[in-house]
Amino acid sequence: MHGDKRMKLLRGFLILLTLGLLGYGFYQAIYVAPTEATMGDVQRIFYYHVPSAMVSFLFFFASFVGSIIYLATRRNHPSRALAADALALASAEVGVVFCTVVLITGPLWARPVWGIWWTWDARLTTTMVLWLVYVSYLLLRRFAAGPQMQTLAAVLAIFGYVDVPIVYMSTRWWRTQHPAPVIGGGDGSGLAPSMATALWWNVLAWLAWGILIMVVRYAVERRRQRVEQHAALRALESSLEVAL
């Protein structure tokens, strides 16, 4: 009971923090950051597009780690494995949401700036494949049932994660339209300091939002697991009573 209360307080604090950060990030992106010289106001979509991409990669990585922990511990520490599985599921779902945002904001930005909605360039292709892989991961989780589903899903998550760098390299050799990395991309790259400030506030804000949703989703999944275990135990007990 005590732990529950503390969790609730923590969650309330996280909600307030997230809302504050989102508000400040919006203010920075729309009012403080300067208008970009050649692209104009359309460039402000950058403050949502790039943070979403960063955060989605982070959550997919969390899902990959959760899947590995699940596979490694499922025999010896079943309860820890279940927690890892819930983490993998929750972060994959949040990652897919962010990835969807990236895939929607990207074409919206590309159309006025490049003159096209879409091109099969390295980063666009990688993001698209990443999205496809994790949607198929969520589909597999829906189609299979029981503890075997968790093992199968964890295996698929590992396959998907290994696939991504290969996709990236292959499309880089193929063609690249997307701008070279602006941040840490070597000489001549770099953002105006005021733009960087707005960017990092938005990264922080959307990361906080993602963590909040993930924590809630994780709690829901843990509760579902507990209900399932309880039901299984009840079924086992009632079958024993019949036998007696």
């Binding site: 494949v129 892989v133 198929s136 589909l139 597999l140 396959f159 998907g160 696939d163 290969i166 996709v167």
Partner: peptide, 16 residues
């Protein structure tokens, strides 16, 4: 389910 999970993983090999 098979094509749904196979095709995304196969994309880089198909491209090559």
């Amino acid at each position: 389910l098979l094509p749904l999970i196979l095709f995304p993983i196969f994309i880089p090999a198909m491209l090559a």
